[in-house]
Simulated scan of single mutants.
Amino acid sequence: MNFYLAKAKIKAAAVHAIASLILAGICGGLVFYVWFPGQLSNMLRGTEMYWLVLLVEVILGPCMSLVIYNPSKSLAGLFRDYGVIVCVQFAALGYGLYVVAQSRPVYVVFVKDAFEVVTSLELDKKDLDEASSPEFEKVSWIGPKEVCSESPQDSKEKSDLLFSALEGRDIQVFPKYYRFCSEGEVNKAFLSSERLYSIIAQNVSYDHFKKQLPVGGFYWLPVKHRFGAGIRIYPLGNMESYYLPLDPYS
């Protein structure tokens, strides 16, 4: 391989890598800032497959470009070769986004004294059709919605829900029990910062979370999800709440 051919190949691969990185950045913004805001991406593990796909996307495309590019090829030949590469890359990216979309959180349901994170994968179409309000009949594509749950009053419904819970499908996956939270409802269940510091003190591996806690004081609540549990921090003042992958039950 002569110097000029090698230089042309490297230039083509570099351009391809830049284009791949731009596309990956756009899709990453959708995943990490819209579908899985904040620490939800770490808590729910829904992005692990996406990272793998992105790695393949960013590395494989430019490597293939390095192999197939040749300035002596006809324009039609280059279009054909790059058409195949682009199709492969988009297929991989589309599959990655599809997997992540299925596992994205769509509802954060307050149940008694804790939040339950519900993903798109956990909601059945039939249950969505039976939602208590039209607002809850569709899953969100712009981040999870926060709602509260209303326990059934009918004895048969209570019995059915109990057996369903034993099978792993509790109240949080049934939109017919969803409702908008009343003012101050969640606040009544707040736990003190002292209690969280006590949990951290009992588990050495949690010590690094101290740096992620508000200096000016805070309240918190447990957050349960299909992979375990975390917490939601409510700083004192006007700061927004945020999640931490700290399991308060371990």
Score class of each variant (00 low, 15 high):
Phe32Val: 00
Lys9Asn: 04
Gln39Ile: 00
Ala14Glu: 10
Ala24Ile: 02
Gly25Leu: 00
Gly28His: 04
Ala14Met: 12
Ile26Arg: 06
Lys11Leu: 15
Val34Gln: 11
Ala24Lys: 01
Tyr50Met: 13
Tyr50Val: 12
Tyr50Phe: 15
Ile10Val: 13
Ser20Trp: 12
Val34Arg: 01
Leu21Gln: 06
Leu44Asn: 08
Phe36Ser: 12
Met1Ile: 13
Tyr33Ser: 15
Leu23Tyr: 04
Lys9Met: 02
Trp35Thr: 10
Gln39Lys: 13
Leu44Gly: 01
Ala6Asn: 11
Thr47Arg: 02
Gly28Pro: 04
Gly28Arg: 06
Leu5Lys: 12
Gly29Arg: 09
Gln39His: 10
Ala24His: 05
Met1Phe: 14
Glu48Trp: 12
Ile18Tyr: 00
Arg45Asp: 12
Phe32Glu: 06
Ser20Glu: 14
Trp35Leu: 02
Arg45Asn: 09
Cys27Phe: 06
Met49Cys: 09
Lys9Pro: 06
Tyr50Arg: 08
Gly28Trp: 02
Ile22Arg: 07
Asn2Cys: 03
Leu40Gln: 09
Tyr4Asn: 14
Ile22Trp: 02
Cys27Ile: 05
Tyr50Ala: 00
Leu44Tyr: 05
Phe36Glu: 08
Ser41Trp: 11
Ala14Ile: 14
Cys27His: 03
Val15Gln: 13
Ala24Met: 04
Pro37Lys: 10
Asn2Val: 01
Trp35Asp: 09
Pro37Cys: 10
Val31Lys: 11
Ile10Phe: 05
Phe36Trp: 10
Tyr50Glu: 09
Phe36Tyr: 15
Val15Tyr: 07
Leu30Phe: 13
Leu23Asp: 06
Leu30Arg: 04
Tyr4Asp: 12
Ile26Met: 13
Glu48Ser: 04
Met43Thr: 05
Ala14Trp: 01
Pro37Gly: 07
Ile18Gln: 05
Phe36His: 07
Tyr4Gln: 15
Ser20Asn: 13
Leu40Val: 01
Gln39Gly: 11
Leu30Cys: 09
Leu30Ile: 13
Gly38Thr: 09
Ile22Ser: 04
Leu23Ala: 14
Tyr50His: 10
Met43Ser: 02
Ala6Gln: 15
Tyr33Asp: 12
